[in-house]
Amino acid sequence: MTEPDFLQTTRASYDTVADDYAEHARDMLATRPLDRGMLDAFAESVLADGGGPVVDIGCGPGQVAAHLAGRGLSVSGIDLSPQMIAAARRDYPGLRFEVGSMTDLDLPDGGLAGALAWYSTIHLPTELLPGVFAEFHRVLAPGGRLLLGFQVGDEPRHRTEAYGKALSLVFHRRRPERVAELLAEAGLALQAQLVREAHDDGVEKTPQAFLLAVKGGKP
């Protein structure tokens, strides 16, 4: 099967800036207490349910997976970019990271206590979200938790440069209520959501959304 163009360009772009991004992102959570709060709520929910394997899907250079490991989760990461995975393995050698795609997860049915997609669905065309959310549902155990992070908005942004290097990345900004609807259609019930304003460091341009959902049953 021919790989979609957006996957090729996304992989190539992140390969190009992997080391720069790893350096930039390493301490980002330290200045974002609300983001940490959602990650910690996700971790506590998984542990309260008995724990189990968690996968950071689109883990980048691994800093969020490392944060979750520090909160007691058994976490690993996958990412489309081999260079991002190389950076994650270098910086967090105690965790397992593998190359993979959320559009075709190499994971067994119902094997995860939790899944994280932290600013990784943002590069997916909207028409692919139902299929990807169905994949998330497939790999989660009943009662498993999913946490999403993404930018809020209505129009995509195309970025052609970062860290002084040429790339091509489309950032799909979305409305939380629409994402929640798509999650529900995939059998993932919304448990909590947080929308915060853009951070004042000049990097963020729009509000940021975080949705915590659960597979089946009551939240």
Rank of each mutant, 00 (worst) to 15 (best):
F6S: 04
D5G: 11
H123A: 07
L188C: 03
L107V: 08
R90H: 14
V195E: 11
R32V: 08
A113Y: 06
D154W: 08
L29R: 06
F171R: 08
D35A: 15
R71L: 15
V152M: 00
L80E: 07
F171A: 07
R26N: 10
V17E: 02
I122H: 00
F136I: 10
E155C: 00
D19Q: 13
P33D: 10
I85C: 09
H158I: 12
C59L: 01
A43F: 02
D40E: 14
G164Y: 08
L107Q: 05
D20M: 06
P156W: 07
A12G: 09
K215V: 07
Q191I: 11
S45A: 15
V55E: 09
L124F: 15
V75W: 01
Y14E: 08
A30K: 11
F136H: 11
L124D: 09
V152C: 07
S81V: 05
T2E: 15
M102H: 09
T2L: 13
E23L: 14
G60V: 04
R89P: 02
G37M: 02
L47W: 05
A48M: 01
S120C: 03
A30S: 13
T206C: 10
V54F: 05
L146S: 04
G94Q: 11
A41D: 13
D27S: 14
T10F: 01
T126F: 11
A209R: 01
A69I: 03
E181M: 10
C59Y: 05
L105K: 01
L116M: 08
K205I: 12
R157M: 13
L80W: 06
R175F: 03
A115W: 01
L112M: 11
V132H: 05
A41G: 11
L194K: 07
P61G: 09
D27E: 14
T160P: 00
A184S: 14
G111I: 05
M38C: 09
A25H: 10
S101K: 02
R90V: 08
W118C: 06
E161R: 11
P142L: 07
P61F: 01
L188A: 04
E204L: 08
G62D: 03
L128P: 00
P142W: 04
L105D: 09
G58N: 06
V170H: 00
P93L: 03
M28I: 13
S13G: 06
R159G: 14
F133M: 11
T126E: 15
R175I: 12
E44D: 15
V54T: 05
G143M: 08
D56V: 06
A117K: 01
A134S: 14
G94E: 13
E127T: 11
A209M: 03
P61H: 04
G52Q: 02
Q83T: 12
E98A: 15
L112D: 02
T10W: 00
T206F: 10
Q8H: 13
A69P: 04
A186K: 02
R157Q: 14
G217F: 05
L212A: 12
V55K: 00
E155W: 04
D49Q: 12
F210K: 00
D19Y: 10
E181D: 15
G62V: 06
P108C: 08
D200F: 07
A48P: 00
I57F: 00
